[in-house]
Design a protein around this nucleic acid. Structure first.
Lengths: 376, 376
DNA sequence: TTGAAAGCGGTACCAT
DNA sequence: ATGGTACCGCTTTCAA
């Protein structure tokens, strides 16, 4: 007599042993290729071939095998398969977490969503490795030595990013989300045209008559921040305005940072009439800073952020102005994933994709009145 | 004569064949257990035991093996190992993406960050499966049949969530991030005390003299939204105020939604003096709606959001009031991951963790003046 | 068109 | 304390 403890919460309609047996076969039990082939009276070889679309299987057999596989809910054991084929059928993302930041950049989730979509369509798994930024090198190495991914997506590249030569040396296919200035090595990337987006946003504010436009940017060891500043400066210079260091800031993209900078900026004797912000999160802080001073958005000051949602623009008239890229990050994720799969499967040479930002300009209230930081 | 095309971008300091050889051995080549054991003049068995901390290995051998492994950058092939042990050493997260939402909830990234931290400390990989919400069942099933995870974290549970009985039937260990009302089955969960957070926030507004407090909530098939409303209603009822259906809204947590609702709310003949918002993203839209009407945050209207960053509170006086949980989501991720690992490794019975929200109340401007929707 | 058998790279049982 | 060996579940020659 053998007592079996089933760790199952059984549905009320499973009344007898047969039902339970069936349920187990269909759900909780996983079938092996061998078992399936035994049922079919075929060899594992043939079943494998039939399931993997090899040509040398008769159509009748293939049909029979496919039906049986579906009926018994058979799916090949991923680990056994990749051990045999040498391909992991998985792609790694390394998310470096600095001990300083408590928050993860919200757009990260959107990128992952886009990439994951493409992966599942192509049978790839997505492996996320969250590591303290100091250990990041090890994360890439261990992806290689543990052999659990076939390729990597590199996030948040910096100026002259050391991870690029590392990955080149490791010989693991990869695609960079973003670019790395000052790097000689060739690499595949998908990036948003940050420079052009910020150039256009600045031009827009200039067209409205703004002359003192502040830039609240991300830390400039990050490549995207460098490019955004370049666009901002290019637009000003083209109009004969020398960028004013007192109006330019680079820092962590937090709400506190946005708030504090705004208070400082607006307390200056000659405050800006517009603020261009590099992050949605920071922009929340900027808005609070503005509110606290009793100023009015869209009248006393214009705010442009780079990461926001297009929904801002549904209301056409007389509102602050925003640029938007967050909604296109998902698409960047899709494109990067597809590029990596192409590189891995067809040994393509590195490619490059430059996406234009979804820069949508809403209407504004026109030139801002001088700001009165003492108001409110 | 054999020509070998190396798919490597070689560093400039790799001048000769030996250097390249060395580089390959150290980086691009992965060593197997057999190769390592050959070098050491030991059997694979002994090397494996030494590396895995089995007691029956002499200390001298262990040292020698460890040194050699380190020197040659040996790491066991994950797939081979899990095939042999039967454990995947990976945990799956299913991210359902509705075709409607373009954005991913920003707090998701924070949860992942916390969980990932714990996983890597414990040698687990994190597998993310991004699937259209219609196919979500299949995602869980395929985790099981493909045998590539040992456990699952369930996200965004709904009222009476059907995935809970499914996972119970599948017999795969899992932990729910959140809870599922109306579900009889037992399950392990980690949740934030949403009810209490919203109750306290509402009480705070009541204390300030507000009587007409609007609630802009998430869709109420989501469990968290149900609990938040319960807290809101409890606080009102306790003061003898009957919740007014005209002030309660449940919808997608988008900026557009926040904006449109706010415009509608404030156009009512008897508008609210405070708005309690369930999402940081929605709150951005609410603020824009308020701005457009020329009202002032913190004076004409109070805004409380539930997902925000504590940085809002750094400025003590005369500001809008917020509650904050976003910063604690990471901690929820850590706790959920740890719980799952415990369940998997020690076959613990399901456990439950209820985290109090980081509900921090800032100072307010006091009772709001009646709102004038026609202002501005 | 099908099947037998040899790996893939580990782990774990059974000897010694 | 160490080594031989039979798996784990699948793919992939090679033979029939």
């Amino acid at each position: 007599m053998l007592n079996v403890i089933l760790p199952l919460t059984l549905s009320p309609h499973l009344r007898n042993v047969d039902d339970i047996q069936t349920a187990l076969e269909h759900c909780a039990t996983t079938m092996t290729l061998k078992e399936l082939s035994d049922i079919l009276g075929l060899s594992p070889t043939t079943v494998s071939r039939a399931l993997n679309g090899y040509p040398e299987v008769s159509e009748a057999t293939r049909k029979r095998v496919a039906a049986a596989a579906r009926e018994h809910g058979y799916a090949p054991n991923t680990r056994a398969r990749s051990l045999a084929t040498g391909r992991a059928m998985a792609i790694g993302h390394v998310i470096p977490i600095s001990s300083k930041h408590e928050m993860v950049n919200p757009v990260f989730g959107d990128f992952i969503a886009g990439a994951g979509e493409v992966y599942s369509r192509n049978g790839y798994d997505m492996l996320l490795s969250v590591v303290p930024d100091a250990d990041e090198d090890d994360a890439y190495r261990s992806f290689l030595t543990k052999r659990n991914v076939d390729g990597i997506i590199l996030h948040a590249p910096t100026l002259n990013d050391p991870r690029i030569p590392l990955l080149n040396a490791l010989g693991l296919p990869y695609v960079v989300h973003g670019r790395s200035s000052n790097t000689d090595a060739a690499y595949a990337w998908v990036d948003v045209n940050n420079k052009r987006a910020f150039q256009r946003a600045t031009e827009f504010l200039l067209d409205l008559g703004h002359r003192r436009i502040a830039l609240v940017n991300g830390l400039e060891h990050m490549d995207f921040a460098i490019r955004r500043r370049a666009g901002y400066e290019a637009a000003l210079t083209a109009r004969g305005i020398t960028p004013d260091p007192d109006l330019m800031f680079a820092g962590e993209m937090t709400e506190a940072q946005g708030h504090d900078l705004t208070r400082t900026l607006l307390a200056q004797p000659n405050p800006p009439t517009a603020i261009l912000v590099s992050s949605m999160i920071t922009a929340i802080g900027v808005r609070r800073g503005i509110e606290e001073l009793g100023l009015r958005m869209g009248r006393d000051v214009s705010l442009i952020t780079h990461d926001d949602d297009l929904s801002y623009f549904r209301n056409g008239a007389d509102i602050p102005v925003y640029t938007a890229t967050r909604s296109s990050v998902r698409d960047a994720g899709r494109k990067a994933a597809q590029m990596l799969i192409d590189i891995m499967q067809r040994c393509d040479t590195p490619r490059e994709i430059l996406l234009e930002a979804d820069l949508t300009l809403g209407l504004s209230t026109g030139p801002a009145a001088p700001m009165h930081a003492e108001a409110g």
